[in-house]
Nucleic acid binder design. Sequence first.
DNA 1: CTGAAAGCGCTAACAT
DNA 2: ATGTTAGCGCTTTCAG
Lengths: 366, 366
Amino acid sequence: MASKHNTIMKDIANKIGMSVVTVSKALRGHPDISHKTSQKIKTIAKEMGYLPNYLARNLSARNSNTIGVVVPKIAHYFFGSIIEHIYNKAFENEYEILLSVSRENAKNEIKHLQTLMSMKVDGIIISITQETSDFEIFEVVKQRGIPLLFMDRIPPISDVNTVAFNDRIGAFNAVEQMIKVGYVRIGHFAGMESINIGLQRYLGFEDAMNKYNIPINPDWVMKAGFGEDDGYNSFMKLYSDDNLPDAIFTVTYPVAIGIYKAVKELGLKIPEDIDVICFGDANMQKFLSPQLSCIGQPTEQIAELSMEILLDNIRKKQNGFSPRNKIIETDLILRETCINYKNRDRILNDVNDHNNKHNRIVKVQF
Amino acid sequence: MASKHNTIMKDIANKIGMSVVTVSKALRGHPDISHKTSQKIKTIAKEMGYLPNYLARNLSARNSNTIGVVVPKIAHYFFGSIIEHIYNKAFENEYEILLSVSRENAKNEIKHLQTLMSMKVDGIIISITQETSDFEIFEVVKQRGIPLLFMDRIPPISDVNTVAFNDRIGAFNAVEQMIKVGYVRIGHFAGMESINIGLQRYLGFEDAMNKYNIPINPDWVMKAGFGEDDGYNSFMKLYSDDNLPDAIFTVTYPVAIGIYKAVKELGLKIPEDIDVICFGDANMQKFLSPQLSCIGQPTEQIAELSMEILLDNIRKKQNGFSPRNKIIETDLILRETCINYKNRDRILNDVNDHNNKHNRIVKVQF
DNA sequence: CTGAAAGCGCTAACAT
DNA sequence: ATGTTAGCGCTTTCAG
């Protein structure tokens, strides 16, 4: 530290002939100190370019005014957007954010959580990776008394704060939309079931299919990951098996993008050859051709609510705080996919077929 | 801290009847300690769920093994991608990343820089906001002896590390491509000139126009920001003035997206009514319709090089380190825009006109 | 209103 | 090979 300029409290204290304690108190606006000396000290501090040493401050004060955030990805509209909102909320409340990116890797996730604990953050907001299956680390966090909140991606453990979207209803709405448009041959590119968003979205899909008495073709339910590659590969698989459904509901928008990519390569057309709707909105979807319809997740809402609950937990953790679990509703955003029959005749045939076989009426809106 | 489980070194020391110092050394693999006791201590530490307190460690060791990163945005492919690569590099080198997002706000930027200094980071990588015009804070960082590196967005100050793309040549290549395709009526949606990427890309535009002796129409040079809104508004302005060029080179891809949006709303067509090429690549561009051609920036390269230089600076700062300035070349990525004439006859007329007037030959490749 | 004493958890320098 | 001493910069008692 060969720097000219690294004022500490002691320097200020020496300069004005007072003690370090007085300086410390004055700088923090402690009522002990008279307004006059307080002002004087603050002025001098500014003149001398004083900056507090948070390591020392936090070590001694045993709180850091810092909250840790762990997300699986960052080059991704959903998380990018959430993080910006978390920052805003943190700023308002004079908290710092320590951001970690696990890159969908459970080992990284553990490492990051340990680091955050070692940095003595006041609380943690986390969206777990798609592969997280060992939940012990979360127990450790809890046992250490660090307020913890799971956001969007939630592990099956109890007694923790959670804020999630209503994935099941959202998925249901998407699939119901497909059915209302007239589709019967419906596929679902799903995520892992080990994670809530994978499972719940699958269940929503199932709910809708069941409600309309449409049998689920297991060949068309591809359980993979949440990424573009997963969508691409799943689609290619079905295509090469010559076993394409008419429309696909995807668990995330990158998966849908993967389908767009495959479709483009294969010289197919959306929605004529295959129609698509996805869970999750992103800025770019309205620029796709055709514009991708989706289930929109209000990211600002999840970010703000998560922060509010966590901050509340931090403030009240001494006097007993019971974990809260919140669900946020999603929006059905209709753009240019899954809004129209793609092949009136074939669909009519399919539907008639289906209705004959299943003694159940699917209405088609043309 | 009403937690059951917050082992500190002292607890370990007590348990095995040794001193805290021995534990500290053992845990860090200090050669002082015999392999045997070292192993023993490590085992016990693990059993007791010991996690180091970084605040204490860093306060006493006066280095934090942490580097601060400040970026203007995060819900943005370019920065998202860079950050992921920075994380990878940091991991390899056992560094932590403290990530701050300024949200294009110079005040936030200053605040974040102060926080990072207060947190005693070992070094800082920063991409400044589009509005940063007061560079004093960077001097403060330098004076404090904290290694500093500017990445991509660089202020006009000397004696600091910088890693940037060759914006001028990149822009030149984009505009030359437009000219080769046959455009003469070329506009540029530029950024602020106060920041290097704004200025350099403008200069590259100018270089190309000059090389081919095409006069620059100042009405078509819109100097605004780097966002989608800027592109949208600029385009709407030109449109409502009934003064559209044939093709536009944009300073960033969000600006181009803004044009796509305006074009869609106005019922115009790309590239028939207006052609576009932009600086900066993003995952989504190949899904736009038409696919947007651009100048690609190798994000992995800039991230890795930045980290390497910064780490080198950190290691050598005691024994004198001279700031390094690196330039990375860009790629011209041709997709579906600016690859073809949009109106052969008109362009031929334009070009003939132009050649007659300027005694210079622009070749059109049909 | 101000300050002296003690300590946060850890590490570096110097013994032993 | 292990321990003692001192201190990182700050905050929290508790006396004055």
